[in-house]
């Protein structure tokens, strides 16, 4: 589904160039659950941002279902992201002023879906993730685990082809972290393609494939 060919990304700050990704090659198939690990500064987050079209690449090619994404204009990239990519963050990134229901509904609104269809989809997701009873609550009223479930539901709501998760358990204690990992594995079993960046070896073990990174290089892949 996704192929990265010799993708490089560097940042220049005050005359110092940092090579965040160094000619990375990577293939992701539909239904994969991949965990990316590595020490701080190894390029994990940059890889995720590149895949999520949040950062442009310096060289190489990014193919998504046969389409070369780095050739697209920023506007087209935004449209592509809207349809195909979902995000989950370490700090959940829910909008404080919107309820659980409204947060999950947000991507559907921007996709221009009908109100009825939106409601149907959000109800279904809340049911599936066990947060239906929290529908009208505001994010501040939820526990960390519940907030992450809402974030996951929001990532799923637009029916993206891939979910990119950046340290989804980083802000959760271990038991709740485990719960979230089980949920992601379950979603993967139901067909979702997931790429997750994590520091935790234990949580990385929930994935089907493990990618280790160091200094912008892709060290090894374990299945």
């Amino acid at each position: 589904m996704i192929i990265l060919e010799k993708v490089s990304k560097s940042f220049t700050t005050e005359h110092i160039e940092t090579q965040a990704l160094n000619a990375i090659d990577l293939e992701i198939d539909a239904g994969d659950f991949i965990a990316v690990t590595g020490p701080s500064g190894s390029g994990k987050s940059t890889l995720l941002n590149v895949l999520g079209l949040l950062e442009p690449i310096n060289s190489g090619n990014y193919w998504f279902e046969g389409k070369n994404l780095n050739a697209l204009s920023p506007n087209r990239q935004q449209l592509f992201r809207k349809k195909n990519i979902g995000f989950i963050f370490q700090n959940f990134n829910l909008i404080d002023e919107l309820s659980v229901f409204e947060n999950i509904e947000l991507p559907l609104i921007y996709q221009g879906r009908e109100r009825k269809a939106r409601h149907h989809r959000v109800d279904e997701l809340m049911e599936r993730l066990g947060i239906a009873h929290r529908s009208s609550h505001m994010p501040q009223q939820l526990s960390g685990g519940q907030q992450q479930r809402v974030a996951i539901a929001r990532a799923l709501s637009g029916q993206p082809k891939i979910i990119l998760a950046d340290e989804p358990t980083g802000n959760l204690d271990s038991s709740i972290g485990k719960e979230v990992m089980l949920l992601l594995r379950e979603l993967n079993a139901q067909g979702a393609t997931i790429l997750m960046v994590t520091h935790s070896k234990e949580h990385a073990n929930y994935a089907g494939r493990l990618i280790q990174m160091k200094d912008g290089f892709h060290l090894q892949t374990q299945n």
Binding site: G52, L54, N75, Q78, L79, R81, K82, K83, F87, N93, L94, I95, D96, E97, L106, P107, Y110, Q111, R154, G158
Partner: peptide, 16 residues
Amino acid sequence: ALEVGVRQISGASKTQ
């Protein structure tokens, strides 16, 4: 700012 970021990754365009 954070809200804008979340809206952007949820698919909001600049015009919206």
